[in-house]
Design a protein around this nucleic acid. Structure first.
Lengths: 342, 342
DNA sequence: CTGAAAGCGCTTACAG
DNA sequence: CTGAAAGCGCTTACAG
């Protein structure tokens, strides 16, 4: 079951491998190979079920037509969907994509990145964790095209596709205030990641705007590396202790999911005892009762833009890093009803 | 920013590329290269930040240390988690994994498979769709190692890791019967995929066992290729029309999620108007109110077994196809309370 | 219009 | 203990 190579095709058509290579790459017409020859070669290639050896091709050309996508956790709804659009988009332009998830683990992220870089893809789309900065600088130095999604490093002049996190948080708080809530907690992550900081800023700014006092103890920062179990415990403890809050903003999908679990255990009724709003939409938020009000990210937009920018960079159409900031939308559901006067 | 190659290391250490290659592959001691030399080469390799060119390596050895994982839809909870364990498992043995989702689309599945095969991975883990059979036969003929997960083809003697679907459905019905339900609908897919057929068989057998009449019109087969919108409509129409059923079994994650949406739109109260049980667990089922009783798949088990079998096959330890069937577990929650006498 | 030959970076059987 | 050389399958600059 030897793989068939261009040599086999050459032999069978009685022509040189050069000609076969030219024709199979679609350069027959340019190089003025006779139409007859072209047809014959293509027919034989099909008959033999030829598929080019990507290693040889990659070795020779230095191009792989493969994009690397590195996310925290592929099993998460947000990244699962990002992956899906990135793949669809890339396929349109003839690229395949190789996924890797870094599982939020520092050692892992670095290994993964190193492994992927070793595979020499044409470019990378990365949702970076703090610990990946050194590897990303390597990419940068090596001139490898890449684009950051969801998060970025302020002191790195790289292409990125991110969300207007400030606005997302700002609008959430504005909505809560309009519904009559006034003691609004924010549950966020203690990571350095810029997007969580922006969300916190938006929260503060919105409070200020509506002349609602800001209480530092209404800000709960969950250590980034905690396991789901520990996050659950932290949130549970926080909400139990702070029984004067009337609403809560979760700054990520994951925090929100675990948060709902915590509320459930505390027998706090969503939308009754507590207004709830989360960043990122998913099936749970959409379909649970009451359905959860969310700040929805334009997932398709993120994926499409990332691929577009990356391909432009690979094809050297643009050399300047491009930064795209997309606008989130507030999806009002049942977890933030008008607050009853008490 | 030229990549460094073994030639550079050879030059810098004043030794041949052969020696460098041997040492870098860890065969120094075997080939009795002096310890001194080994150290020197490794030091230089590190200094130069050397990483081997995978194309050259792959071209030369025919091995890639990469596994391909092909699933329907990476954004789905079940496959997202499968991917995660497969990746973790594979990493342990020094393999990276390349994901591709076929999006349930026939044309797509074939392209994807062809593309992946073109990349010549060492082996494949595939959740096959019906339309992939021809490509899989190609793999078979070519002697490429692969293992099927979640589904298999009855007339293909391939390695597989699947669920005891029959038992899952059987136990679900048994549970419903015990809780007092007697008019149990099953909402499934019209695909040829064996797992849906097995689930239907389990359902029938369990009814028979408990002497509950089987009504063919309590079986709703949703066309496999329907969009989410159409599936929603189908389920909605079915449940509205059949107002005498007292419970429903959804045979997949996806069907269950959309089913919950349908119930919501029909204002049917889960666990009150209708007992509900679904195949596959997820956050929505676990955390919605009422929480949904499910047949949970041992996701980690599936991933681990698949990798294990595949690696054995790649390393030629076993040549016979292996078939592993895992046992699902019934997780009783709030959507199937004891039925009140009416 | 077509082909011979070099070379991408690596591994490996063989020779010494 | 170490190295020269062949070769994996392809593309491409060059020659005719």
């Amino acid at each position: 079951m030897k793989k068939v190579s261009i040599k086999d095709i050459a032999r069978k058509t009685g022509v040189s491998i050069t000609t076969v290579s030219i024709v199979l790459n679609g350069n027959g017409p340019d190089r003025k190979i006779s139409g007859e020859m072209i047809e014959k070669i293509q027919k034989v290639a099909k008959e033999l079920n030829y598929s080019p050896n990507q290693f040889a091709k990659g070795l020779r050309t230095g191009k792989t037509n493969t994009l690397g996508l590195i996310v925290d956790d592929i099993s998460n709804f947000f990244f699962g969907n990002i992956s899906k659009t990135v793949e669809e988009e890339a396929n349109k332009y003839g690229y395949t994509v190789m996924f890797c998830s870094s599982q939020n683990d520092e050692g892992k992220s670095r290994d993964v990145l190193s492994a992927l870089i070793g595979k020499q893809m044409d470019g990378y789309i990365i949702a970076p964790t703090d610990s990946m900065l050194p590897e990303i600088r390597e990419l940068e130095k090596g001139g490898t095209p890449y684009v950051l999604i969801d998060r970025f490093f302020p002191d790195l002049n790289a292409s990125s596709v991110t969300l207007d996190n400030y606005k997302g948080a700002y609008d959430s708080v504005a909505h809560l205030v309009k519904q009559g809530y006034s003691k609004i907690a924010i549950i966020t992550s203690d990571t350095e990641q810029i997007q969580h900081q922006e969300r916190l800023e938006g929260y503060k700014a919105s409070l200020r705007k509506y002349k609602i006092p800001f209480y530092p103890d209404c800000v709960k920062k969950i250590p980034f590396k905690y396991s789901s179990q520990k996050v659950l415990k932290e949130i549970e403890d926080f909400i139990r202790d702070k029984d004067d809050i009337d609403s809560v903003l979760f700054t990520s999908n994951n925090l929100g999911i675990i948060g709902l679990e915590a509320l459930r255990r505390l027998k706090k009724r969503v939308g009754v005892d507590l207004g709830v709003i989360c960043f990122d939409d998913n099936n749970l938020f959409r379909l649970s009762s009451p359905a959860i009000t969310v700040i929805s990210q334009p997932i398709k937009g993120i994926g499409k833009n990332a691929v577009k920018i990356l391909l432009e960079q690979i094809q050297k159409k643009k050399k300047e890093p491009q930064k795209v900031v997309l606008t989130p939308s507030l999806v009002i559901r049942e977890s933030t009803p008008e607050k009853r006067k008490s």
